[in-house]
């Protein structure tokens, strides 16, 4: 009997276990993967990441010089970043923010640094 009472009393006098999330955010852990991104200047457009990706979310077009990822198909496994020969792929350590519309991230190799386009 009354086995749960100590827990209830403790909870009454201790801090809340949850955070007021969007207002108060926790620092992410050091090695958390989070969202995939690319340092496009270092990319050779070899396409190894596109072939290795288990979710087939990366497309590389060598002729047009385009590297693109569908962030909504990405499964955050990190295989692409592990197998990248120039180590230009990296995970930001921050989770992707919720959005109201799905987008594909398209990166163009030489002149412009970054062009985000809606599908």
């Amino acid at each position: 009997m009354l086995h749960f009472t100590p827990t209830i009393l403790k909870n009454l006098f201790s801090k809340s276990a949850t955070r007021l999330y969007p207002i108060e955010k926790r620092e992410p852990f050091e090695n958390v993967r989070g969202e995939l991104d690319i340092d496009i200047a270092g990319c050779k457009l070899c396409g190894i990441c596109a072939r290795k990706c288990p979710a087939a979310c990366i497309t590389v077009d060598k002729k047009k010089g385009i590297w693109q990822v569908d962030p909504f198909a990405c499964i955050y496994c990190g295989i692409c970043a592990d197998s990248c020969p120039t180590k230009c792929l990296y995970f930001k350590g921050q989770y992707r923010e919720p959005v109201i519309q799905k987008v594909v991230k398209i990166m163009e190799k030489p002149v412009e640094e970054q062009v985000d386009q809606s599908k």
Partner: peptide, 12 residues
């Protein structure tokens, strides 16, 4: 799991 493997559930 998140701190050691990078993801919470499907830690890969």
């Amino acid at each position: 799991m998140e701190a050691t493997a990078g993801n919470r559930v499907i830690i890969s």
